[in-house]
Amino acid sequence: MKLSFRVNSKIEVLDVEPLTPLIEVLRDRLALIGAHQGCTGDNCGACTVLVNDVPVYACQVPVCQVDDAEVRTVEGLTADAERLAPLQEALAKAGATGCGFCTPGMLMIGLALRQRQPRPGPEELRELLSGNLCRCTGYEAIVQAMLEVME
């Protein structure tokens, strides 16, 4: 199946099996390795990307569903590696990266929540992050860093 969608503002036209999980297409076809696969699906959130600004588990979305859509991955957060995006800067500065495997997913869910109005407060933020697991940090550093950016 021929598909066309935008990834980080770049148009991609691909010939792929329609049911291939989006995560596989991003990683194997487009070499966007930032989103990770941490579980068998629906659990860890390491694969979180935005599809039309909505956070999704890329391991659960068949690629045919993003036909014509706009996909954003961690690679699209900043165009210039010297200048991190505010959320990236905040997580790095707070030391909230641990092993870093959850980090790209956290950044993408963080970006989606940052765009929400009204912005979530600390308790709501914790609840909203519950679909993204982190074993290293106990979340506190991540939550604080995100709140800083959201203020």
């Binding site: 070499a31 390795i33 989103a35 991955t73 991190l84 800067e89 790095a92 030391g95």
Partner: peptide, 24 residues
């Protein structure tokens, strides 16, 4: 707070850290 960030934090927030499955 606000002390030296981890030396590998930049790679990790950019999604560039190379885990096994990320290496071509």
């Amino acid at each position: 707070r606000g002390v030296t960030p981890p030396i590998d934090a930049r790679d990790k927030v950019l999604g560039k850290a190379a885990y096994v499955d990320d290496v071509a």
